[in-house]
Design a protein around this nucleic acid. Structure first.
Lengths: 201, 201
DNA sequence: TCCCTGATGATGACGGTGCTTACATCCCCA
DNA sequence: TGGGGATGTAAGCACCGTCATCATCAGGGA
C-alpha cells in the first residue's frame, strides 16, 4: 500500500525530494543541486517542493541531516564495539570511506557554518559527536574526556577532507583504507615517542 | 609607476581581479564570488577579465593559489624554526587562525578536487606539504617520514574545518587558540597512554 | 451514491544572476 | 602616426528561486 507507484499525487514528495537531491549529488556534484533540478528529478513541477520545504535552504538542510544520520550509522556498523587502537583505525577508515564514496554529500554536510536554529541538523551533528566521544572513552580510558574527542574527530575529519581534495594520492579504495590505517598508527606511535622526549627534557 | 591609479587601461587588471575576489570573499562569503561581481568590484566591465583569465575557474584557481602561498607564509612566520611539541601546537594555532580569519578563502582553497593540471595550484599545495614535512621531521626525529606528516596535516586541517563549521563552540579568537593548543596536547598525551596499553596487552 | 473541501501539484510569470562571445573603441608604445 | 593589446558595449543564452493562481484528486459527511 505504501508502495508508491506514483499515480497522481506522487505519494511522498517530501522524501522523494531528499532522495532526488542525493542522486543529483552523486551524479553531478554539488553544483548541480538546485531546487529546480531536484523537482525535475522527482518528476514534479518546480514549485511543488514548496508544499514541503519553505525554501531551498530547508531542503538542503534536510539532505545534510540525512547525511549525518547515515554517517553515524555507517560508523557504528563498522565497529559496533571499540576497545583499542585497531578499532579506532577501522572507524577512521569507515569515516573516510563514507566521505570518499559520497563526496558531494559530505561537502554539503560541512559546506557552511552549522545553523544552530535548525533542530534536525544540530541533533544529527550531536549524534556523531556522541559516538566519537564514546569510542574515545573506551579506547582511551582515563584520558581527558573533554578535549580528546575533539582531537580525534579533527584528525579523522581532516583525513577525510584531504583525501576528498586529492591532496593525498591514493588511487584505489583499498589504498585509501591502507593510508588511513597507516596514518592512525603513525600518529599514535610518534606521539608516544614525543611524550617520552618531553618527559626526558 | 607600477602604482596603479587606474586611469584608463587599469594597469594590472590581472592582479586587481584576484584582489577584488579576495575582498568579495571576506565580505560576502563564497556565494558572492562570481566573475561579474569580481569585475564590478574591480571597476571594470563584465567581459574585461576574459583578457586575463580563460574562464571563471581559472580565476578561482588563481585565488586559491594565492591562498596557499599566503598560508605557507603565515605558518612559517608563526614559528620560523620548530623543535618540540609546543612549536607544533603554535603552528597548528596559526593554521586554524588562518582558516578562521579567512573562512571563505579557506573554503575556496579546499572546495573541490585539486586540479592536477593547474601548475600553480599543485605547486602551492606542495609548498604547504613540504613545510609540514619539515616541521614533523624536526619535532619527531626518527619517525616515519612518509606517513606521519599526513597524520599531522590531517589533524590540523580537521581542527581548522571543525572550527570553521562551528562544530566546536569557541567564541573568541583566544578561545579558539586555546582549544587548538589543548587539542594538540591532549592528542599526544593520550596517545602515549594508548601505546602503553597496546604494548601491555 | 454524490458532492464538498482541503491538500497537493501544475502553470506561467517575474526578477534576477551568471558565463560567454562578437564587435566597437580606446590609449599606450614604438 | 599607426599598430595592437586592453577595455567597453551589447547581446545571447541558460539557469535559478519564488510567487500567485488554477487544476486535480482523495476522502468524508450527507
Amino acid at each position: 500500500m505504501s508502495q508508491a507507484s506514483a499515480p497522481y499525487h506522487h505519494g511522498d514528495l517530501r522524501a522523494a525530494c531528499v532522495r532526488a537531491a542525493r542522486e543529483l549529488l552523486e551524479e553531478s556534484g554539488g553544483s548541480g543541486l538546485s531546487l529546480r533540478a531536484v523537482a525535475r528529478r522527482a518528476g514534479v513541477s518546480a514549485a511543488a517542493p514548496y508544499r514541503h520545504y519553505a525554501d531551498r535552504e530547508e531542503l538542503i538542510s534536510a539532505v545534510a541531516g540525512e547525511g549525518y544520520r547515515e554517517l553515524a550509522g555507517y560508523l557504528a556498523a563498522a565497529r559496533p564495539s571499540s576497545r583499542n587502537l585497531d578499532d579506532l583505525a577501522e572507524i577512521a577508515v569507515a569515516y573516510v570511506r563514507f566521505a570518499v564514496e559520497h563526496p558531494a554529500l559530505f561537502r554539503v554536510m560541512f559546506a557552511e557554518p552549522c545553523d544552530r536554529d535548525d533542530e534536525e541538523r544540530v541533533q544529527a551533528t550531536a549524534t556523531v559527536w556522541e559516538y566519537v566521544t564514546g569510542v574515545v572513552r573506551t579506547v582511551f580510558p582515563g584520558a581527558d574526556t573533554d578535549t580528546l574527542p575533539t582531537s580525534v574527530w579533527a584528525f579523522v575529519h581532516g583525513l577525510a577532507f584531504l583525501h576528498l581534495d586529492g591532496k593525498l594520492d591514493a588511487d584505489t579504495p583499498e589504498a585509501v583504507d591502507d593510508r588511513v590505517r597507516a596514518a592512525v598508527h603513525a600518529l599514535f606511535a610518534a606521539s608516544a615517542q614525543a611524550s617520552a622526549e618531553h618527559v626526558r627534557s
